[in-house]
Design a protein around this nucleic acid. Sequence first.
DNA 1: GGTTGACTTCGAGTGCGCTCGAAGAGAGAG
DNA 2: CTCTCTCTTCGAGCGCACTCGAAGTCAACC
Lengths: 124, 124
Amino acid sequence: MDVLTVGEAAAQVGLTTYTLRWYEQEGLVAPVARDTAGRRRYTPDDVDWLVLLTKLRRTGMPVRDMRRYAELARQGSCTVDARRKLFEEHRDRVQARIAELERDLDVINYKVDMYRQMEKHALP
Amino acid sequence: MDVLTVGEAAAQVGLTTYTLRWYEQEGLVAPVARDTAGRRRYTPDDVDWLVLLTKLRRTGMPVRDMRRYAELARQGSCTVDARRKLFEEHRDRVQARIAELERDLDVINYKVDMYRQMEKHALP
DNA sequence: GGTTGACTTCGAGTGCGCTCGAAGAGAGAG
DNA sequence: CTCTCTCTTCGAGCGCACTCGAAGTCAACC
C-alpha cells in the first residue's frame, strides 16, 4: 500500500505528527480519510499537498493565507484564477525577500572582510 | 546636534521606541547615554549599531546570537576573531536560506504556470 | 489473551519577539 | 503657570506556529 499513517506521513514531509493533526484542524488540509479504527490514512495526493504546504510555509506564507488557499482549492476549478493571483502575489513577496537578503548579505560580507583586515593588521 | 531621542532614533532605523528600549534591556545595545532629565540620547554610532542589528534580525539571526555578538563587541578588539567567525557562520546560514528560497520559488513559479495553462484551456 | 506501541482527542503550555498600558516626570510653547 | 508632548520604568499581554501531556482506543504480534 502507498497510504501512510500520520507518523509515516510526518516522516515523509518533515513535520511532526502534532503539526499534521494541527494543520488538519486549522483547515490547511482537507479532512484526511480514516481506516476502520478511525486512524488517518494519508494518500500520495495528501502527501503531495503537504509537501506543497511546507514550501509555502518555508517561504514565509502565514498560516492564514495557506488556509485561504486550501479553501480555494477545495472549491474546485472555478477558483483557479484566484489561486493563480495568490501565488503571483506570494512569488513577488518571496522575490523581494530574496533581494533583501542579498543586500543584507553584502553588509555581512563587508563586515567579515573588515574583521579579516583587523586581524591582519593586529599580527606581530 | 546629531544626537537623537528614542523616538527620532526609532524613526531613523525603522523600529518602535518600545523595541529600542527592549533591545537595550536585552543587552543588544550598550546602555545609551542620557541627558540631565534621564532621557536617552542616541549618537550616530548608536544609530549605526542599530542599523546593523536590524540587518542581522532581518536575515534571521536570533536575538540570543545578537546579544552574544553585542557582548563580544563590548569586550573590545580581542574578540575580533570570534566576531568574524560569528559573521561567517551567519553568512553561511543566510546563503543556504537564499538557496532554499530560490528552490521553493521555482515550485511557486511552476504552479503559476500550471494555473495559467488551466485558465487558457478553460476558455470557450 | 496479554502486551506493546502507534494511534485518537482535548485543552493547555511554550518560545520568540515584540507590544502595550499605566503612572509619573520634565521640557518647551503660549 | 498651565498645557501638551515626549520621555521614563515596570510588568503584563499578544500573535504566531507549533508542541506537548493525559487519558483512552485499537490492531498486531507472541
